[in-house]
Computed example of a mutant assay.
Amino acid sequence: METVAQRQIHSLLAKYGESHLNHTNELIHFICIPAIVFSFLGMIWALHPLAAIAVTVVSLLYYFRLSVPFALGMLLMSGAMLWMLSVLSQDQVLKVSLAVFVVAWIGQFIGHKIEGKKPSFFDDLRFLLIGPLFVLSFLYRRFHIAY
């Protein structure tokens, strides 16, 4: 029997998927969504590393409410990104993050132009947090990991 949280994550992923049916758009998202998460964390890291960690913890709390397996995947992904930011020189973090952010968002909008549908977050800001789970869902299905 599916729990309320399981129904919610399946519903959110299905709704998000409605504007991500084109294979090219999906491929663009697989590259650009992790890049956007990395660059977003990087911009916050440039303000203060603890702020980036705090944002990560808050997002992980949301992910744990939706799905423990997804939260664990995001913990690994976020941890790797925070580690990468920690090895960059502090004066390079903001420059790199801004460049990646701009290029990745251009990619996202090109993908949606190809798809012919607007980005999901225009209707519901939660989809900014669901995008990374959409990418993870493909990886999880490929490796038969339940979420």
Rank of each mutant, 00 (worst) to 15 (best):
Tyr62Val: 14
Arg65Ser: 15
Gly111Asn: 01
Ser86Arg: 06
Asp123Glu: 14
Leu136Asn: 08
Leu66Thr: 07
Met74Leu: 11
Lys118Tyr: 07
Val135Phe: 03
Lys118Asn: 05
Ser97Thr: 07
Leu98Thr: 09
Val96Cys: 04
Leu125Asn: 12
Met77Ile: 11
Leu66Lys: 05
Leu75Asn: 00
Arg141Phe: 06
Leu133Cys: 08
Leu66Pro: 04
Val55Thr: 07
His112Thr: 05
Ser97Ile: 01
Phe121Thr: 00
Val100Gln: 02
Ala104Ser: 08
Gly111Glu: 01
Tyr62Trp: 14
Leu133Phe: 06
Pro119Tyr: 05
Leu136Val: 12
Gly116Asp: 02
Met74Trp: 03
Leu72Pro: 11
Tyr140Asp: 00
Gly131Ser: 12
Met81Asp: 02
Ser97Trp: 02
Gly116Ile: 07
Gln108Glu: 07
Ala54Trp: 05
Thr56Val: 06
Met74Asn: 06
Leu98Phe: 10
Asp124Trp: 10
Val58Pro: 08
Leu139Ser: 06
Val96Met: 05
Leu125Gln: 12
Val57Ala: 03
Ala99Tyr: 08
Ala146Glu: 14
Lys95Trp: 15
Ser59Trp: 15
Leu128Cys: 10
Leu82Ile: 03
Met74Gln: 00
Lys95Met: 15
Asp123Ile: 13
Gly111Tyr: 02
Leu85Pro: 01
Leu61Arg: 01
Leu125Arg: 13
Leu94Trp: 04
